[in-house]
Design a protein around this nucleic acid. Sequence first.
DNA 1: CTGAATATGTGAACACTGTACGCAGCAGTT
DNA 2: AACTGCTGCGTACAGTGTTCACATATTCAG
Lengths: 235, 235
Amino acid sequence: MPNPDSPIPSVWTRPPKKAPALSREQIVAAAMKLLDTEGLEALSLRRLGVELGAAATAFYRHVANKDELIELVVNEVYGELRIDGEAPWRESVTVIAHSFRAAILRHPWFVSVIGEVGLAYLGPNVMGKTDQMLAVLERAGFALEDADLAMTAVLSFVVGHTTSEAAWLTTLARSGRSEQEWMDGLVPVAEQAAQPYPALRRLFELQRRSGAATREDSFAYGLELILDSLERRMR
Amino acid sequence: MPNPDSPIPSVWTRPPKKAPALSREQIVAAAMKLLDTEGLEALSLRRLGVELGAAATAFYRHVANKDELIELVVNEVYGELRIDGEAPWRESVTVIAHSFRAAILRHPWFVSVIGEVGLAYLGPNVMGKTDQMLAVLERAGFALEDADLAMTAVLSFVVGHTTSEAAWLTTLARSGRSEQEWMDGLVPVAEQAAQPYPALRRLFELQRRSGAATREDSFAYGLELILDSLERRMR
DNA sequence: CTGAATATGTGAACACTGTACGCAGCAGTT
DNA sequence: AACTGCTGCGTACAGTGTTCACATATTCAG
């Protein structure tokens, strides 16, 4: 907001407006930060405008619509996956899986958005990581179709498991209660229900005291179920 | 919009208002129908009001807010799961998994919502089915914690795999293109990309011609990977 | 150097959304 | 008959994504 009465407008060395002041990368970076710090429902174009000192409508010069913006941020998450193409295949896949899980937990909004975006949008990072993972499996001796099946199985499990984890963590955070408090409140829920849930009730009780298997253990367990079978089928 | 100048307000035989005219079950049923036929973004309280001949604000007498309404509909989906507690455990689990998949595909909006609801809301159907599934595994000889781990692994895979499927199907439907057209368009995408995706490119080509493994095959394959390992660990 | 063309940001406006609130009428009880 | 609680409605508010005409700034052609 330059004051039009200012006496020095033509003397002023022009501010560096060579760069268009708003770039696609800037926008997705700001969106990512906003999503990570305040969650999905905090991401509105007007809010993003405040964050970047621009009007809400300015983004339409750089991005088709909000959906495309989200696709771009999702693609950015895929960029965080680490793939070690040199290690033996089982180790490679394990690293990918854990790194995917970590990335999702770092960006919990991801799971609220994956159902809409899916794998239909093929951003460069999505395609790149997929390609590398296929390559790892092929080098291990899988035929291309089998590599596809194996990869799909692993990634499906990773996304499914981590979806539960992330959803649980966000609702836990929203509730304000501690994890122990929540578990304690769970047992009465299963008791007072109209129908009895005997097995579930015992599970709640078990988890409440003997400190439940951690979520990471559960993740590692399921992953090994899949990898064990894959390894056996290869030999 | 009753006209206040109308000469017959007190003569009017009162409409049958004995039954509260709006019940929780009615509301979730209408919401479910709307979701299934027109998708998630069509579900607004005002639209639901039109569907039920009521004002948008009427629902707040029966449901806390829109989020709770969605939780209720999600719980309804769980109600569609079929569990055969008598069959041998492997068959039982297979049936549950396929029935879960079918339910999600019948209600594709489910995957857009599961990331927010997660398993934090424990509706009666959610708890009921979980309990029955645990019981199946315990009866097969799993210790309770192991049954939990096994169930989590299976359900994670089911949700993850079906999430991809449903997301893919909805974007395909939205695009208007046929599946074959889409696959044909995929190969050039992998070719013209800045970086090359050799494995992915070959996979696209392979799927385009030799008619790709169906999604159900891929689902069954991954499921069997998990079940094979579970079976082996049991003996 | 001038003038036209193109790219970028803005403010107002539109059609929606979820939801809070107060009012009206009916149900059943006292 | 009066009171109390339940249910639905109309209004209103703050906020959303998006469109469009307009202003400016930059780039390029002659």
